[in-house]
Design a protein around this nucleic acid. Structure first.
Lengths: 198, 198
DNA sequence: GGTCGAAACGGACCCCGGTCCGTTTCTATT
DNA sequence: AATAGAAACGGACCGGGGTCCGTTTCGACC
């Protein structure tokens, strides 16, 4: 397959045995299929193990915890979304003015977060800790803020801007406070304008 | 005690039987004591029930779930904090200019949230749903924004401003991103300025 | 192809949150 | 004081997440 993999270089986290890799794939597929039938919260670890044809211990060996498994599933859709940001069509992808990109970023983020709300919740803090998601997103916002000439603590500003796009806040707004989705999107645009305005 | 209580008016959620009330108190006290010894995450519902001298079923009857019990405990400290906002000394309490109050509000919120981080996490979404906390806080921020002459969607702005004060975001900033606490406090001040600046 | 140590496997087991239902306790009413 | 029925009680029970450890499988090296 990939000759590079045959001689593992130092620093790499040690290669994975063939059966282990096969089981990981089987487990991810089994979990995805089960989620499609019953919703996320009804999928048990035993069921995933059984469907994948492995023992329960193996599931936990691979993914640490239920949250870990869900985070691994999330990782897939997150990666697709990141591709859209990095190389998809504008205004989300490159090619549009930074302000348009930042607005589109928020709208798109709201959409995917809501689409995968149940999975994100099930991934708990393991989802947030995942290198892929949190880090990339924050980086991208910082980059756009920089392009827009914003001065100040970009690190803080990025997380502060991203906070209202997180599931708990969105659910509070849409659920308890009964805001329509359009208001939330418009609110993000307004917030962005305010952050830029000095 | 309170003569008004003797004739319950319509609309009230029905009075509580004497033994029930006694058990609620006993359970809250037992839980608080156990938390003081072992930390929150090591306190089991069985232990709380046993210490309070009641059956396990009673705990769940009173508080619905573990999260419900934790939320009830939180409610106490939240109420104290609210008193500080409503009638404590300035700049958190009334008497200071709105901008100073808003800044102080953020700093104070960060402090209490971090102090009770474990409990808040254990209360999960039950803590957020609690009428007391979320609603009051949002109301207060809206009020201050109004005093400051901010125009726009104050409802959205309030939740957006409050989002970076929530536990998951604070923990991400202080933990993963290794920001010092002073940076977070300063970041809040800056964010407030930006939101006001148009 | 055979050998050996390391890694992965599997499923019995434990712990804890949450439910259920037969029993007990309270209180309104007479 | 007696009664009745609603509400609360308690603890056996269940299901699911997570662990442990004896057994099996892999693959590096000879």
């Amino acid at each position: 397959m990939d000759p590079v993999r045959l001689l593992p270089m130092a620093g790499e986290p040690a290669p994975e045995r063939a059966d282990a890799a096969r089981n990981r794939e089987a487990l991810l597929r089994a979990a995805a299929e089960l989620i499609e039938h019953c919703s996320v919260e009804n999928v048990t670890m035993d069921a995933v193990a059984q469907r994948a044809g492995v023992g329960k211990g193996t599931v936990f060996r691979r993914f640490e915890s239920r949250e870990g498994l869900m985070a691994a599933l999330l990782d897939h859709t997150e990666t697709l979304w990141q591709r859209g940001v990095l190389s998809g069509p504008p205004p989300l992808g490159p090619g549009a003015p930074p302000l348009d990109r930042l607005r589109a970023f928020g709208h798109s983020r709201i959409d995917t977060v809501l689409t995968h709300a149940a999975l994100i919740r099930a991934a708990g803090r393991e989802g947030a800790r995942s290198y892929a998601a949190a880090s990339f997103i924050s980086m991208h916002v910082r980059y756009l803020l920089g392009e827009l000439g914003v001065t100040g603590d970009l690190g803080y500003l990025a997380t502060a801007l991203l906070a209202p796009l997180e599931i708990p806040i969105l659910e509070q707004q849409l659920g308890l406070e009964r805001m329509p989705l359009t208001q939330v999107r418009h609110g993000w645009d307004d917030l962005v304008d305010r952050v830029l305005s000095r």
